[in-house]
Nucleic acid binder design. Structure first.
Lengths: 238, 238
DNA sequence: GAATTCAGGTGGTATAGACATATAGATATC
DNA sequence: GATATCTATATGTCTATACCACCTGAATTC
C-alpha cells in the first residue's frame, strides 16, 4: 500500500514529465489539491514538502507554488543505473535473472541498509549483458517494506531504478566503492572468463529522499567490457 | 516571533554542538519531546523532519531517532594526488623511484598528450607506499618542454602535483578511467602479490589551464590497500 | 488619477487525536 | 531450550480544524 502523499508526489512528477507543467508554471494551490485528491491539507503539504526539498518545486508565500526553473547542480557525478549508462554509450543492455530470494542478511549489509538484521531483504542476482555479451553479475539487496512493493517489480527488466521511480520514490544519490577482485568459479562461469581472472568490483549503496537507503549492491564486472570514467577537478588555489 | 519548530531544531543542534549528543546517540522520542516542549507531536516532527533532511539525524521506525554518524562529504569530485588522498585519510605516503627515462612513446599516449610522437617524454616509474607498505606502481609520462622544467622536479618526493603548482602552473582537472587488470610478473614482484592477482588499474590524464594535458599516468593498485570511493547524484526529473 | 482600504486566496504554523507499522523485550507455550 | 505470542513503545501516515502572514487586485476614498 503506497502512502497517499507519495501518490500525490508521483502525480506531480508525471505532470512535469509529460510536459503539462513546465518550469515557471504555477501548480494548483494546496486547497485545490485537497479537493482534487479528497485528502487533508497536511497530506498535500507532505507531498509538496518533498518536491520542494528536491528542488523540483518552489513555494512563494501569498502567491503559490511553482515548478522550479533552475536545474541546480551541473551534475558532474551523475547517478545512472547500469542500463542507463549502457544506453547512453550507444549499446543495448539486457539482464538475465539468476535468482531471487527472500532472506536475511549479515550485520554489514543490514546496518548499511539501516534495518534490523532480523528483517527480511529481497536478494536479486542478475547477469547483466551488453549487446548480448556477458558484462557483469550484480547482487542487490532491497529491504522489504511497505513503501516498496517488491512484488510489483520486474527484476528481468533492465532498469530497476526507473521502476522504483515510477512508483513515486525518488532516488537521490548513491555512494560507491570500487575495487578489484579475482573471479571465483561461479562468477567466472557466468561471465565466461577464466577462474581467478581480474574483475572490477563495484559496491553501491543507493538512497532515496531523507538519506534512506533502499538498495545495497555488489557487482562484478568484466574489465574488458566495462570501465568507470570520471572527471576530477582540482580544488581552489593553493 | 520565532516558530516553535525552529526553536526545537536549534535546541537539538545545540545539544549536538555541545557534545551532549554524539553521533550514534538516540535522541528523545517524539512523545518525550512533546512533553518537554509542551507542543503537539506534528510540531516536533516538523523540527525533526528538517534535521533528518539535513542529514543530521536518522530515523528508524520502531527504534527511535539517532544522531547521524556519517558526515557526508562536501568535497565531491576533488582531484588530489595520491599522496594528498593518503594524507587526508590519516596515513603516511611515500614513494620509491623505480626508473626515470627520456624516451618516445606510442600513438595512444602521444595523442592524448597532444604531442607529436617524435617528441620526447619523461617516463617516471614509481612504487607508492602507504605506511611503508606497497600500495601501487605508477607510470607517468610528462611531455618534455612544455613550460615544465622537468629537471627541477624531484620524483622521489611524494607530491608531484604540489611541485608543479609551486612552479606557477595551475592544475585544473583530470579525467580518469578505472578498470581491473591481472598482475604481471614484474608488477607482482614490486607489489609483493602473487602473479595474476587482481589489481585496480587507474589511468589518469591531467590537465593544466586551457585543457593542456600535462601528465598521462597509469597506476596499478593493490585492491586490499586502495579503493576508490565516490558519491553519485541522481539527475533531476526525467 | 493616485493613494488607501479591504477581501479573498496563498502558503506557514500549530493543535489534538487516530490508526498503522516496526522493533524489542517480556511472557507464555510447546 | 526453543518458539511463538503478547505488549509497550517507537516512528509513519492521515484527518479536520484554526489562525497567521503575505500577496494581489478590485473597490473605495481622496
Amino acid at each position: 500500500m503506497i502512502p497517499i502523499y507519495l501518490e500525490i508526489r508521483s502525480y506531480m512528477i508525471k505532470q512535469i514529465e509529460k510536459g503539462r507543467l513546465v518550469p515557471g508554471d504555477k501548480i494548483p494551490s494546496e486547497r485545490e489539491l485537497v479537493d482534487l485528491f479528497k485528502v487533508s491539507r497536511m497530506t498535500v503539504r507532505h507531498a509538496i514538502d518533498q518536491l520542494v526539498n528536491d528542488g523540483i518545486l518552489v513555494r512563494m508565500v501569498g502567491k503559490g507554488t511553482y515548478v522550479s526553473s533552475e536545474r541546480l547542480s551541473t551534475a558532474l557525478n551523475v547517478l545512472n543505473s547500469f542500463s542507463e549508462d549502457i544506453i547512453a554509450s550507444g549499446h543495448s543492455p539486457s539482464a538475465k535473472l539468476i535468482s531471487v530470494e527472500k532472506t536475511q542478511t549479515g550485520n554489514t549489509i543490514s546496518s548499511l541498509l539501516r534495518i534490523d538484521k532480523s528483517r527480511e531483504v529481497i536478494k536479486v542476482e542478475r547477469l547483466r549483458l551488453v549487446d548480448g555479451l556477458e558484462m557483469a553479475i550484480t547482487t542487490s539487496f532491497f529491504p522489504v517494506s511497505r513503501a516498496l512493493p517488491l512484488d510489483e517489480l520486474d527484476f528481468t527488466a533492465t532498469s530497476i531504478y526507473r521502476q522504483i521511480e515510477s512508483l513515486g520514490l525518488r532516488i537521490e544519490k548513491a555512494s560507491e566503492t570500487v575495487t578489484a577482485e579475482a573471479a571465483d568459479k561461479r562468477s567466472a562461469g557466468f561471465l565466461r572468463v577464466k577462474e581467478n581472472s581480474p574483475l572490477l568490483k563495484i559496491i553501491r549503496l543507493t538512497f532515496i529522499s531523507n538519506n534512506v537507503p533502499i538498495e545495497y549492491m555488489e557487482g562484478l564486472f568484466r574489465p574488458d567490457r566495462y570501465v568507470i570514467s570520471q572527471e576530477l577537478y582540482r580544488q581552489g588555489v593553493r
